[in-house]
Structures are given as C-alpha cells and as structure tokens.
C-alpha cells in the first residue's frame, strides 16, 4: 500500500491508475465535506467528482509540504464555495413549505427535552444559511460543524486570520438573525 506522500509522486511519474487509490482513500471524507454545503446526494456526487478531477489536474502543484489530504480537502472546500455561488443566484427566499414537521416543531418549541434529528437540523440550517453569502457560509460551516480552527479555515480559503475571525463573527450574527426569522414565520 502506497503512503499518501509518495502516491501523488507515483501518479505524476506515470502511474495514473494509482489515482483510483486516492479516490478510494479520500472519497468518504470528500463526500462528508461537500454534504455540508449541498443536501442533494446526486449533486454531492457530481461535486465530489469535480473535486477529484480538479485534484488530478493540479497534481503537479502538490509540493508535499502539507499532508495530501489537507490539500485535497482545500480543493473540496473551493468546489463547494463555487457551487454555493452558482446556487445563490438560483435559489428562492426562505419558505416554510421547505421545512418538515419535525423541524417546524423544534423551531417553535421551548421545551428543552424536544429532540432534533440530524435530518431536521440540516433542513433548518440549510434554509437559514441561504441568508448568508457563500464565503460566510463556508466559514461558519467549517467552524461550527467541522470544528476547524481559524488556521485551518485560513489554509482552506486563502483568507487571513483577521479576515476569518471577522467573517466568522459576522456570519454567526447573520445566522442567528436568519434562525430567529424562521422561528417567527
């Protein structure tokens, strides 16, 4: 089994079929990242394919200074960001019909015992996050859901530490407002 550091080198030196190994090793994580930004499974698969094809094209630029998986996940985040920008133009305003009963119950309830399942939570968050710009959405998703540090967000987005911190604060405030708007609907 090839080590992650030497696998890209082998592919560059004329073993393109070894790229299958890259796909096998990283597809689950790439799907998980992209699923944070797109709920449709077919679209997630298309985005994952786009991520791997972009990684293949850019393989010459991988210099091995950072782990290969970080480099690949950075590409996935950029693919997600581009996708959000395209979708932003297309998507509608927030509307209650898009939320299921469980999600609506949880939003309107003050009962601390009221459970929320992942699917309903994702529905709510997906709607509320549409109020945010794609860049804000990436920062809040990486920070609050993926649990990434500011440094990791900087590495993935290419933004400075100060810019990420400011954006995270602003995005959090905007998201809270969007969620409150949903509660009132």
């Amino acid at each position: 089994m090839n080590d992650d550091a030497e696998l890209p080198e082998r592919i560059r030196n004329g073993a393109p079929d070894d790229f299958a190994e890259v796909v096998r090793r990283h597809q689950s994580r790439v799907f998980a990242i992209l699923h944070r930004y797109e709920r449709d499974a077919h679209k997630v698969e298309d985005l994952a394919q786009e991520t791997f094809v972009k990684a293949w094209r850019a393989l010459e630029q991988f210099d091995g200074r950072a782990p290969f998986e970080h480099w690949l996940y950075r590409i996935a985040v950029r693919v997600a960001l581009d996708h959000l920008r395209r979708e932003k133009k297309r998507r509608n305003e927030i509307g209650l019909p898009e939320l299921g009963e469980d999600a609506l119950d949880w939003l309107r309830s003050d009962n601390e015992q009221n459970e929320l399942d992942g699917r309903a939570a994702a529905e709510i968050l997906d709607l509320a996050l549409r109020e945010l710009s794609p860049a804000d959405r990436v920062v809040i998703t990486m920070q609050e859901i993926e649990g990434c540090s500011v440094k990791e967000i900087c590495a993935a987005t290419g933004a400075s530490g100060v810019a990420v911190r400011v954006r995270a604060l602003r995005a959090r405030a905007k998201l809270k407002r969007a969620l409150e708007k949903l509660v009132k609907l």
Partner: peptide, 21 residues
C-alpha cells in the same frame, strides 16, 4: 442544532463513483 447536524450521515459514494472519476 449544530450537534444534530454534525451527527447527520453524509451520502455514500455510489458503486461506480471511482470508475466515473
């Protein structure tokens, strides 16, 4: 809300995903 979202499973790659790439 965020804890619940974190627990949501991502879709699995289809059987021919690797071949498609």
């Amino acid at each position: 809300l965020f804890a619940a979202v974190r627990n949501e499973a991502a879709p699995a790659p289809s059987a021919d995903f690797e071949a498609g790439v």
